[in-house]
Simulated scan of single mutants.
Amino acid sequence: MKTNIPVYDICSLTNNSKDDILISRFAHYLSVHKNLFIPHKHSFYHLVYFTQGGGSQTIDFEYVAVKPDQIYFMIPGQVHNWDFEGHVDGYIINFSAAFFQSFLLKAGYLDELPFFSGIVADSVIDIPADMQTIIPALFEELVKENAGEQLLKADMIRAILLKLFIAVSRLGNKHDNVPAYNYTLLRNFQKLIEKNYTTLKLPKEYAELLFITPNHLNALCSAMLGIPAGEVIRNRIALEAKRLLINRELGIAEIADQLNFADNSYFTKFFKKQAGVTPEEFRKHNHN
Rank of each mutant, 00 (worst) to 15 (best):
77 G>I: 01
200 L>P: 00
128 P>F: 15
49 Y>A: 04
161 L>E: 13
34 K>G: 06
36 L>V: 14
105 L>D: 08
131 M>Y: 13
109 Y>W: 14
157 I>M: 15
194 E>G: 14
107 A>P: 01
41 K>Y: 03
77 G>S: 05
91 Y>Q: 11
127 I>W: 04
69 D>H: 11
227 I>H: 02
30 L>D: 00
54 G>N: 07
239 L>F: 02
54 G>L: 09
29 Y>H: 11
154 A>C: 09
143 V>W: 12
219 A>T: 08
7 V>Y: 00
68 P>R: 03
11 C>E: 13
154 A>Y: 13
251 G>D: 08
116 F>R: 00
136 P>G: 09
278 T>V: 12
111 D>H: 09
98 A>I: 03
88 V>Y: 00
74 M>V: 01
6 P>Y: 10
207 A>V: 11
83 D>L: 09
93 I>C: 15
258 Q>D: 07
158 R>E: 07
266 Y>P: 00
199 T>V: 15
126 D>R: 03
155 D>Q: 15
281 E>L: 12
133 T>D: 11
282 F>L: 06
33 H>A: 05
129 A>W: 13
229 A>C: 08
100 F>K: 05
5 I>G: 02
65 A>P: 10
4 N>T: 15
236 R>K: 15
287 H>I: 05
24 S>Q: 02
113 L>H: 02
44 F>T: 04
279 P>V: 08
41 K>S: 03
186 L>E: 02
34 K>V: 12
20 D>Q: 12
33 H>N: 10
116 F>I: 02
64 V>T: 08
274 Q>V: 09
111 D>P: 00
259 L>C: 08
